Simulated assay, not measured.
Amino acid sequence: MRESIKPAFTGRGAPLRQYEYLVITVGSGEPVPIAYQRLREHAEYGKWELERSTLYLGGQRKYLMRRKVLRVERTLTVY
């Protein structure tokens, strides 16, 4: 099982991306219940939501999860 995160850039000059993405790839020989358990853990503890799941010819699965990026602006002016 392989996981990779595509982060959203924040700060000045960054594109206005609303979500960051997590891609989970499961090989054809790996058990599906373990992959589902990993998806549930990411959803519960990391606030990720499942956007898309893909089943490829040969049995490989790919799950695309996303979560909203919270942008925080400074409210205190320091001189």
Rank of each mutant, 00 (worst) to 15 (best):
V32H: 11
T10N: 07
Q37V: 10
R52F: 07
K68P: 12
V26H: 02
G29A: 09
P33K: 08
Q37G: 11
P7I: 07
L50K: 01
R38C: 09
Y36H: 13
K47F: 11
G59F: 00
L64W: 09
G11M: 06
E30M: 02
L16Q: 05
S53L: 04
L64N: 08
R40W: 04
Y36A: 12
R40E: 12
F9G: 12
G29K: 08
R74L: 08
P31T: 01
R2N: 14
Y36D: 13
Q60K: 15
Q37N: 11
R12I: 05
G27F: 02
A35E: 10
W48T: 01
E41V: 07
V72P: 00
R12H: 14
P15S: 10
M1R: 05
T77N: 11
K62G: 01
I34T: 09
G11T: 00
L64K: 10
Y36K: 13
I24F: 14
Y79T: 15
Q37D: 15
T54G: 04
T54A: 12
L50V: 13
Q18T: 13
R12M: 13
P7M: 08
R40D: 11
A43I: 10
E44I: 11
P31M: 04
Y36L: 12
K68N: 13
G13H: 03
G11P: 04
V23N: 06
G46W: 11
V23T: 13
E20P: 10
R66V: 03
L50Y: 03
K47R: 14
L22S: 02
G27L: 04
R40G: 14
R38M: 08
R40I: 03
R61D: 04
K6T: 15
L76D: 10
T10C: 10
G58D: 00
W48D: 03
I24D: 00
M65I: 08
H42P: 05
R52L: 11
A43L: 02
E44V: 14
V69Q: 05
A8M: 00
R38V: 07
A43R: 06
Y63C: 02
G27N: 09
T25H: 05
H42G: 03
Y19K: 04
R17M: 13
W48E: 02
Q37P: 00
L64T: 13
R12P: 15
E49K: 12
T54S: 12
A14R: 01
V78I: 14
E30N: 03
L57G: 07
G27K: 04
Q60I: 15
I34H: 06
V23D: 06
V26S: 02
S4P: 05
M65P: 02
T10Y: 07
P7R: 03
G13W: 00
L50F: 06
V26T: 07
Y21I: 10
E49D: 10
W48K: 00
R74S: 14
Y21R: 09
T75N: 07
R52G: 06
R52V: 06
V78F: 08
K6V: 14
V26C: 00
V69K: 05
S4C: 12
L57P: 04
L57C: 05
G46E: 15
G13K: 03
W48I: 02
G58K: 03
F9Y: 09
Y45C: 05
E73L: 05
R38A: 12
G59Y: 00
Q18A: 11
T77F: 04
